[in-house]
Design a protein around this nucleic acid. Structure first.
Length: 589
RNA sequence: GGGCGAUUAGGGUAGUCUGGAUAUCCUUCCGGCCUUCGGAGCCGGAGACGUGGGUUCGAAUCCUGCAUCGCCCGCCA
């Protein structure tokens, strides 16, 4: 609770400096209490014992007894060697009412902090629809974008389009050389695609890609060799910046990318800028970069002329050779990534990338190379893959859950719940609510766990609408909205902050949580841990429910001015916080 | 084989970077609460730090052995 810390730290500094303890020695030890029942802030006194030659408990006792009586504190106590500070509920209420809690805006850059950040996320190869595993990247990245905006940073969300190289080359080759009946024949042993997505290009065109992969693996030797030559020459041309080939690639992947973006748009995910990988080949920066790399001390050349850096000299363990140029002189994906990052540093003072754990080595290589070029390395948020109960999610084995299917199912199940709970709603209303609830549940299920944790996708968890889920938070928000609507037509008493002895527990708990709201957001942004904020939002919703129970806003046709002010503040925090998580804060559900 | 990460109640998860009290929250199970603003709710109870060492006044947290799981180790992207 920073607001409280700001008030008490000067008093604490006075007291401790008299004992010869400098602030630098204890400042980081003053922390939010682990035992909420003991207080809001805690200073463990154990480390002082040896310098003061006193027992920790005695030190805590003495500090507690001599701490001045100030408005912000209800009491200062000592327990088991800890000095505990409990915020005064009246002070908490005054803090909230005075507007000290920053609500924020997750939807646009406000420039509040003056800091800028470029977040690159998703950047999936445009060769087929999103499955749930790939979508984790987009959901984590978009949430990070939103939370940075909510905090007040100027954010740019960037999609790096992989518009060259083998994957897109295979897609382009297949679209050019395979007929629809070829594709159907090649994929005849697979499950047919869902009828639902016959007009969605990502679901359609991926079949050409898959069919080509089947051919590349199972065709007869001569045919395979011919295909590899054809695709190889396309890829080679693209890597040398052949405009005609790049344009054919673009017309192959663009409808696929549009289909993928349509899926993400349903989840509220969008981008500010798209940068194509080919750009750095076409404008010559990759060629220049390779020359620069050639001149580095740690650069070396293989027998066939390929260029690599020996990153072992810079502390990389395991495989230390990092190839940046093929024997034929063309660049590699990672080379272009280095060029891309140098460009990005010209665009923003802070860079964040969201990457799957399979990119760890690659990111390390790119980072070390950037440092070798006197550039900074970007911050990287890695996430583990999502598994299915049957095992790894794999397009080849056919065990994938497409995001489009998950969202349809979420919508259907949410509709069923809404219909049962609110039989009076018409179809259109039900559908709108179900869409908001369903997509929110899917997003939240992914956001609420720590990114490095590999987790197993389970339908019943992704579609949970109860406590611990997004709809739980949404529901608290609709309650607050409902109260606001009702209160707007009624006479109100003036805002009179009650004294502590008439404050119910549910009110105090809500005030406490509101006073930590900005702290959690700040930490969540700084450490790139969206799940911390997500879990805080659950607590805030829970606290609002407690307030709702203990503290009626409307009683006997009259609005309690104070309770309504608190309710409104909570409503604002719930609304902006939901937007920060990418959840639509609907007003009724 | 090497590198990196993970392991917390029946299931899932926070806390680990920066050591500190009675280990968070959800689910599950058990018991309560609808004549007060929307019960997708609220209150109470049961149940966990993989394992062996080490460091420390103090270890879920730091070091280390082992076990299990995941990812990577291509002149692919």
């Amino acid at each position: 609770m920073r607001v409280l810390e700001a008030v008490i730290s000067s008093y604490l500094e006075d007291l401790l400096s008299k004992k010869g303890l400098e602030k630098s020695t204890w400042a980081s030890m003053l922390q939010p209490s682990r035992e909420a029942s003991q207080g809001d802030l805690t200073l463990p006194c154990f480390p002082f014992a040896s310098t003061l030659k006193m027992a920790p408990q005695a030190i805590a006792d003495e500090l507690a007894a001599s701490f001045p009586d100030i408005d912000a504190l209800l009491h200062v106590t000592s327990m088991n060697g800890y000095l505990n500070f409990t915020a005064h509920p009246e002070w908490l209420a005054d803090t909230v009412l005075s507007g000290s809690i920053h609500v924020g805006n997750a939807l646009e850059n406000t420039g509040r902090t003056g800091e800028q950040v470029l977040i690159e996320h998703t950047s999936a190869n445009p060769n087929g629809p999103f499955h749930v595993g790939r979508a984790r990247n987009a959901i984590l990245g978009d949430t990070l974008v939103r939370l940075n905006r909510l905090h007040g940073n100027d954010v740019r969300a960037e999609y790096y389009v992989d518009d060259m190289g083998k994957q897109v080359g295979v897609l382009a080759w297949a679209l050019e050389n395979l007929s629809e009946s070829d594709v159907n024949e090649l994929l005849s042993e697979r499950e047919p695609p869902s009828e639902r997505w016959t007009t969605k290009a990502d679901h359609q065109r991926v079949r050409w890609y898959q069919a080509a992969q089947v051919l590349r693996k199972d065709a007869d030797v001569d045919r395979k060799a011919q295909i590899e030559r054809d695709i190889g020459s396309l890829v080679h041309a693209s890597e040398h910046g052949d405009i005609a080939v790049l344009e054919s690639f673009e017309s192959a992947y663009t409808p696929v990318l549009e289909g993928m973006l349509a899926t993400l748009s349903r989840l509220g995910i969008s981008y500010d800028t798209f940068t194509k990988e080919s750009r750095f080949v076409v404008d010559g920066t990759v060629a220049k970069l390779m020359q620069t790399l050639d001149a580095l001390e740690i650069a070396d050349t293989a027998d066939n002329g390929a260029g690599f850096l020996d990153l072992g000299q810079r502390g990389l363990k395991g495989k230390t050779e990092f190839f940046y140029r093929r024997g034929d002189g063309s660049s590699l994906y990672a080379t272009r990534d280095v060029a891309y990052h140098i460009w990005k540093w010209g665009e923003s003072s802070r860079l964040v990338n969201v990457l799957g754990e399979d990119h760890k080595l690659q990111a390390k290589q790119v980072g070390l190379t950037l440092e070798e070029l006197d550039q900074q390395r970007p911050e990287v948020l890695f996430y583990s893959f999502i598994k299915l109960p049957e095992g790894k999610m794999s397009t080849r084995q056919g065990n994938v859950v497409f995001m489009d299917d998950l969202l349809e199912e979420a919508h259907a199940q949410a509709s069923a719940v809404v219909r049962e709970l609110r039989p009076e709603y018409d179809d259109e209303t039900v559908s709108a609510i179900a869409e908001a609830v369903g997509t929110a549940a899917v997003r939240f299920n992914i956001i609420k766990v720590s990114p490095e944790k590999g987790f197993t996708f389970r339908w019943e968890e992704a579609l949970a609408f109860e406590a611990g889920s997004a709809p739980f938070i949404m529901y608290a928000h609709t309650r607050a909205c409902s109260i606001a609507k009702r209160a707007s037509d009624l006479p109100s008493s003036p805002v009179a902050r009650p004294s502590v002895d008439t404050m119910p527990e549910g009110l105090i708990e809500l005030l406490r949580l509101m006073c930590t709201h900005n702290d959690v957001l700040e930490r969540s942004v700084r450490e790139q841990k969206a799940h911390l904020f997500a879990l805080h939002m659950l607590e805030l919703a829970n606290a609002y429910n407690g307030f709702y129970r203990d503290c009626p806003v409307v009683r006997d046709g009259e609005v309690d001015g104070f309770a309504f002010s608190i309710s409104e503040m909570a409503r604002e925090l719930l609304r902006s916080g939901l937007e920060g998580l990418g959840i639509k804060p609907i007003e009724a559900m």
